[in-house]
Design a protein around this nucleic acid. Sequence first.
RNA 1: GGUGAUGUAGCUCAGACGGUUAGAGCGACGGACUCAUAACCCGUAGGUCGGUGGUUCAAUUCCACCCAUCACCA
Length: 672
Amino acid sequence: MSEHERNILVTSALPYANGDLHLGHMVEYLQTDIWVRFQKMRGHRCIFVCATDTHGTPIMLRAQKEGIAPEDLIARVGEVMSKDFSDFLVDFDNFHSTHSQENRELVETMYLRLRDAGHIRSEVIKQAFDEQENMFLPDRFVRGECPRCGAADQYGDSCESCGATYSPGDLKNPVSVLSGTPPSERESEHFFFRLGDFEEMLREWVSSGRLHESVSRKLEEWFDAGLKDWDISRDAPYFGFEIPDQPGKYFYVWLDAPVGYQASFLNLCKRRDDLDFDEFWGRDSKAELYHFIGKDIVYFHSLFWPAVLTGANYRTPTAVFAHGFLTVNGQKMSKSRGTFITARTYLDHLDPEYLRYYYASKLGAGIDDIDLNLEDFTARVNSDLVGKLVNIASRCAGFISKRFDGQLSDELMDPALFAEFTQASEGIAQAYESREFARAMREIMALADKANQFIDTHKPWVMAKDPEQLHAVQAVCTQGLNMFRVLMGFLKPVLPGIAQRAEEFLATGDMNWDSVSSPLLGTKIETFKPLAVRVDPQSVNAMVDASREDLKTSEKTKPMDPIADEIDINTFASVDLRVARIVNAQQVEGAEKLLQLTLDIGGETRNVFAGIKAAYDPETLIGRLTVMVANLKPRKMRFGLSEGMVLAAGPGGADIFILSPDEGAEPGMRIK
RNA sequence: GGUGAUGUAGCUCAGACGGUUAGAGCGACGGACUCAUAACCCGUAGGUCGGUGGUUCAAUUCCACCCAUCACCA
């Protein structure tokens, strides 16, 4: 394989400096890091840059709330993130910040080039304004009733209940999230990027294999709907960069964030003589440029970004790689279930390489979500990494150390089998290259099975009892260790730490992609020490518990719902609460949030629609006891008559908890 | 509401440009072994491939509709 050396610049999406990194974020950084390490192992020049995304209203407000300057907030968050990344063995060539001199200059340059080329226009628009806080409100900062379905407390841009999209002005009874007062509407001049100027260029760019097929299909929507101009300005007060010659107007965070990729790279260029900014970003750059992103920000990276780059006379990305989201135990991460796990909480309990391997074993090139099933995680890491892979070294090392003073044989016992391993190299490399990590892991583990079978067939522990066969024992174990070494080389992008310990154990030096194809013969190895220990399920449980505890402490700081007005005992007694057995629970066709429950309250059964679909699987409800309001006036709903109400607590969505009586309660018993 | 993606053994996932007995790992069960971090090896059981309808000699694979889950709607 004498592939020419490639020049590659890679980015991960910039994490927003307003909170902790969690295991969902890590999917992307680990995916990118594995890919970059693979490229470096292949001998290519591959530069991996990232930065904190630091601008916008949420960061400004959070800093205000903490009583510190936004600069101090983003500096602090940046340091925490940087530590999280390095502890997860994410090896950026540079981790910078969008609030940097480089970024300011690049954004200004970009804007001026776009403006001078006629791609910017201005328009006076109406926007929600908080009179008390004296600032314009982003859509998400206005809440009110959905104009279509009337659902209460919805965001200003879309309704979570019926899915309608609209603008904040359409909401009924809107209030500002900041002050709780109804917003007024004010006019303001905004600047727009004429995206439509780039339609032809974008159509060509999108359809030339730079995006996964499912992503380009999704983008067809935008072209079909017609490309709209993009609002790139925001009014003061805003934490960001002021637009040149437009006092009080700031660049929208989504304009300067991707420029942060360039800024981070430029910052690196200043410190490295071998890198030239224009070689990678110039219009005629021959270098490859890849952005790894989540599927939620495909639009920004595959329409705005290539258009803005083109308009400002830069090159466009070679490809944009979008990945799916993370679920934990099959569901959205949930703080109450303890599955909203921060990067730090994970690191406090478990080895980062286990997550790297687990993600790798599930990642493909597409935008499918991946699931972190914690039981599967434990089983898979223990079985694959410890039981299969490390076991090969572990079961061979003892013989070589004790019987042969660490000396390997001078030749391979089964060169054909070894060749089978090395010949898998290109297929596995191809899988890494195309980000089919799961396929690569499967192939590697299939080889690990072969290695174990080989040892099992030749039974060195039997031969070791016969002095005449000692030579064969050495040969079997030498073969085994060499197969292990090849596999460890293949896994080095995923498991850099374990690979390094294996290099030390085998005394083999720094392995690259090709070097492992030449077997290690006649040399001495070091004493074997466990390269990886098994995942203790207790640690996984402790991590989940700690994630729940994080919630407890954070909730203490939240104001409690105010206690309602005092009532007397008679008022309470007028509510007839009964123990009920859920005899049936099922989905309601066409309902977004409801489950249909059939409740047995002793003498009779009731039909109740409960808004708990996001929180409960109907199967698990059947048979259990709960508490219902039995004398609530029946309510006619779109799906039928609801004859009562099940008692539950919680903020809503997946965080709803229905009540259960203690053991011994019977359906129909009154609660008093 | 619109658009895209996903739905295959208990769990996590492969796969099939339509065609003989639909695969893997884990888990379960049985056996063998004892070199190895109770690891490893051999074997068995497990699926009407989300549902309904259509096209076809033939569909889990193509088409339509429906249901569920995820995402996006600038």
